[in-house]
Design a binder for these strands. Structure first.
Ligand SMILES: [Zn+2]
Ligand SMILES: [Zn+2]
Ligand SMILES: [Zn+2]
Ligand SMILES: [Zn+2]
Lengths: 136, 136
DNA sequence: ATTCGTTATGTTATGTCATAACACATCCCG
DNA sequence: CGGGATGTGTTATGACATAACATAACGAAT
């Protein structure tokens, strides 16, 4: 566990197990990968994972990557706040960088406002090569 | 068919059928919905739809909405060009507005450049209420 | 016109991701 | 104690996507 989210509303055993698996991975994981990682802890069925993920996402501890059907632990201290986080996904090594740039979020909010679109949430995912993989 | 994509590399029969279904819909459609819509034309299996969709996406005629697992016809004349299109999805009526705002795309490219991230593609999807549904 | 590579198609089976429905347990508060 | 809210376990099912193989259509080169 990194230092990012040490403090938090008490997690249940299942939620904590799922979070730790995600946080210990350096790439996004599918729900079924998490399930397999936790069979030794007694997990048997997908719902045990999905229900934990649902809560962890509500707490802002975990994000879903829509373009991968996979999940990552949040890398920011308080992500429930910044609702317009984005993700840069390396197609070679699988690593994901989460960013929360006001320079990117603001024009999106502006566009929505001008269109009369009531913004409830956003998915911003970039695909490409991270710096390490570009140079390698 | 709108006037948007009248000119184009010849589509095969399957590609043309799939495109017409998407273009005639005012909301995104799943691959299996398209399949059902085309059973009368002889479609029997998901791959017939997925293969057509793959080509249509390569031509820039169709986009995939990752957050919905669904597909829409492009609403721009030449979408193979602008690689950073975004979509505003109304959670009430299902309508999707495609936008290609330089104000939004530019800061994303700038961020990638500064990070050393080689941008290959992007997913930008907004959820919320469209103007009509907000007022209703 | 025949050959041959490329692209499209048809079909079956399988893989991957996600949720419905029901039962039982636990916790917290009044 | 009672009773609602939340968490859990389990089985079954639904929704989305692709692997693998066979056949057909097309187009350019000989
Ligand atoms: Zn975050
Ligand atoms: Zn990389
Ligand atoms: Zn487009
Ligand atoms: Zn609407």
């Amino acid at each position: 566990m990194t230092a990012a989210h040490v403090h938090h509303p008490d997690l249940t055993r299942n939620q904590s197990l799922v979070y730790d698996v995600l946080n210990g991975s350096d790439a996004p994981l599918s729900a079924y990968s998490i399930l397999d990682a936790l069979r030794g802890e007694g997990f048997r069925a997908p719902l045990q994972v999905y229900r934990a993920l649902e809560k962890l996402r509500a707490y802002g501890l975990v994000h879903r990557l829509e373009s991968l059907n996979a999940f990552v632990a949040c890398s920011h201290p308080d992500c429930a706040g910044h609702e317009t986080a984005g993700f840069a996904i390396c197609e070679k090594c699988g690593k994901v960088s989460e960013f929360a740039e006001e320079r990117i979020a603001a024009p999106i909010r502006d566009w929505a406002k001008a269109e009369g679109f009531v913004l409830a949430g956003s998915t911003i995912e970039l695909r490409g090569l991270c710096r390490d993989c570009r140079e390698g």
